[in-house]
């Protein structure tokens, strides 16, 4: 039962995120536009590029969707309202998100086109930049909770949300999350206006619809992960737990979709340099600080 509820919530969340994205990109708020776009994509001709790596071409979008769905599986909406409450949930989320990279490389390589391939390899460069900044802040979160279970991580924030307890980790995690979902200003793998769609360039019709849906799932999953790890998950007054999770997740998704658009694009090499020289140092400092605080003033 809880699986069906979470999946329904995910579907609604994806739709609302699509509405938000349309609003942020085109400046027009329309509740029907994502549905019309999806129908249009499904009805369109599906073009197969010349001499593709057919296996990779077909697997890419599906693998991206599977990775997104698996990462949603360990995000709790409320106590008990979770697809599977693994004891190692935070690590599982990481593992699922690692396959976003594999999906992008497959989708980039598959169509046998220059734009797609460059987009795919760009994402690999981007991955090397953000990988540590996903794992190291989560380490600090797990240190406070003394558990890798996402439910335990939420419960550890009853007295004080992690966003106040470890603000450095929060900022690093959000910057890394922008990289995972290739959102602006770190959107060069699909870079509109630069690569003609990048990884998406050769996809049309239903395959593109699956691809876009998968990306929406990943955005919702990352927003949900941010809420679980840093914004107290379902914790909050007056409203029921699931409502808090939903509201917070949508708020984080909206912020991720809009804020980055006001910044200049970041090349993957620059992102890599900043992430490793500044980001990893800050992440290590964050782990150290959280360790000291946890030992000295246990909250």
């Amino acid at each position: 039962m809880s699986i069906a509820i979470v999946l329904l919530a995910l579907a609604v969340g994806c739709y609302l995120v699509a509405v938000f994205e349309g609003w942020a990109v085109h400046g027009r708020f329309s509740l029907t536009r994502p549905a019309i776009s999806a129908l249009a994509l499904l009805g369109r001709e599906q073009i197969l590029p010349r001499t593709p790596d057919r296996l990779f071409f077909e697997t890419g979008p599906v693998l991206l969707l599977v990775a997104g769905l698996l990462s949603v599986a360990v995000i709790p909406m409320a106590p008990g309202l979770i697809i599977t409450d693994l004891a190692i949930g935070a690590l599982f989320l990481n593992a699922a998100l690692a396959y976003v990279l594999v999906a992008l490389i497959m989708a980039g390589w598959g169509p046998n086109g220059a734009y797609g391939m460059i987009g795919g390899w760009r994402f690999l460069g981007q991955f090397i930049a953000y990988a540590m900044l996903i794992v190291m802040p989560i380490t600090a979160v797990a240190m406070r909770a003394e558990s890798l279970s996402s439910t335990q991580i939420v419960l550890s924030q009853v007295a004080l949300w992690n966003v106040f307890y470890q603000p450095i980790g929060f900022v690093l995690f959000v910057v890394a999350a922008l990289g995972v979902a290739w959102l602006p200003p770190i959107d060069l793998p699909t870079g509109g206006g630069d690569l003609g769609g990048g990884v998406e360039a050769e996809y049309t019709g239903a395959r593109l619809a699956v691809w876009r849906l998968a990306r929406l799932v990943i955005i919702v999953a990352l927003s949900g992960a941010t809420v679980t790890f840093y914004l107290g998950g379902w914790l909050g007054p007056w409203l029921p737990g699931w409502a808090w999770t939903a509201l917070k997740t949508l708020a984080v998704a909206a912020a991720m979709l809009t804020l980055g658009r006001h910044l200049p694009r970041l090349r993957e090499a620059r992102y890599l340099a900043v992430s490793w020289k500044l980001g990893i140092s800050l992440a290590l400092a964050n782990i150290f600080l959280v360790g000291v605080i946890a030992l000295v003033v246990p909250i």
């Binding site: 190692i88 990481n94 690692a98 990279l101 490389i105 690999l124 090397i128 990988a131």
Partner: peptide
């Protein structure tokens, strides 16, 4: 062996992708 299994699945995704390039 949940932890070891998930760790293996996670680490290999990165390593093999880097090897591919």
């Amino acid at each position: 062996a949940e932890f070891l299994g998930v760790l293996q699945i996670m680490m290999m995704a990165t390593e093999m992708s880097v090897m591919a390039i």
